[in-house]
Nucleic acid binder design. Sequence first.
RNA 1: GCGGGUAUCGUAUAGCGGCAUUAUGUAUCCUUCCCAAGGAUAAGACACGGGUUCGAUUCCCGUUACCCGCUCCA
Length: 441
Amino acid sequence: MTKIVSLAKRRGFIYPGSEIYGGLKGTWDYGPLGSELKFNIKQEWWKTMVKNRDDVVGMSTSILMNPRVWEASGHMTGFNDPLIECKTCHQRFKADQEDVIAEHENWHKEKKEKVDWTKVKKFNLLVETKIGVVEGEKNTVYLRGEITQGVHVNFKNVLSSSRLKIPFGIAQIGKAFRNEITPGNFTYRSIEFEQMELQYYVKPDKKESMKQYEFWKNLRMDWYKSLGINSDNLRFREHEKSELAHYAKEAWDIEYKAPFGWKECEGIHHRGDWDLARHQEFSGQDMSYFDEETGKKYIPWVIETSGGVDRAALFFLIDAYSEEDDRIILKLNPKLAPYKVAVFPLLANKPQLVKKAREIYEMLKSPIPQFPNYPITVAWDDRGNIGKRYYSQDEIGTPFCITVDFESLEKDDVTVRDRDTMKQVRIRVEKLINYIKEKIC
RNA sequence: GCGGGUAUCGUAUAGCGGCAUUAUGUAUCCUUCCCAAGGAUAAGACACGGGUUCGAUUCCCGUUACCCGCUCCA
């Protein structure tokens, strides 16, 4: 883990937040390569979940929302009161309800168990801020603790501005904030983090909803595997009934085997009608769906897939990290790699090599419609010797290195060196774009 | 939230109550016909704030951040 943190900073993936001022707990900044990695992850997610589907649309909603949203969602109630917690059975009680607490103590004493309480704490994990310009007249609002609610409150807007019919989904990627009690494990748990979520609305029917639930659960697992995470390092874990969140009927986590243990990277939740029903109750607005087939109105149920972008980035990095002899290699899937290719002249002091290499660099960097996400990211390097440059690109996960040598000048070709096998093939320049395209798509 | 630990160039490290090591990386140049070759030059650090002291990167206190346990985690 230390090696990952050190590499992340040395090569420009992830830096500590506000470092020159001594940092800020639980915040991290993504550097040139880290921001590319994150962007690629989000792009792959969006492709899989939105662009490739007819039944899912995207949204981008506000971080700041009317505070009543959080009352409806259940994030406020129960968490603003001073609470104490029983260390033996982890139940929480309102600190001012002395009779209930005494009763609980007796219950343990009868079982001859020890009774111990935590200090009185306020458990509000929402991050507070204030809006308004006049001091003393500012309103407290909360940075969203989950991005889900932005979608649910717009359920009717999406219905009336699109032609979607149930079942359909709304996807969103965005920042969320939580006053975590214990941030830690590098970027794994942060105060500020990015989520990528799908809310999939289905008929309020047990059989139908469970069918959808299984579908999305498996699709999400496949997504991580298809982008190169080793299957041995992934597993499903079902939540115990006692740990189910207030909104959930059923919940499974996709977990990754990190150096610090099996950790959640994505949750798939059956939210039932919790969100829409609560928003209907709290807002007084009709949140139901009119089903034209049956002529009936109902509040749909929701299947949610909720993943962390930062967690995905961290786990992709950890899983890709490998050492072979003196080489450090990030075996990132080419779709996620910050740079897709690097271009070198074999020798930096031979102008004709540099010139040709530069031409190929410019060619690959220019907008080429054959590339799926054009223009692609291309690195240039003419420092030191060729071996150093290969090693340097291995360390940041660049899948292909293109070298222009003296033969290239005569035959109009280049060598393409594969990151994982270190093998080289000679490719004619006219065929280079198609060759690269096949490898990185 | 509790306990323990750590903090020196970008990274990894040495060290001392009195000019702060080494390697690597970076920049510029020379050299080099494919896997961290070699040479030259340059820039670059004692986390922050107090205290003790003639003098503190070093000793003490506090803060901050990170790491390891426990705890917590919608």
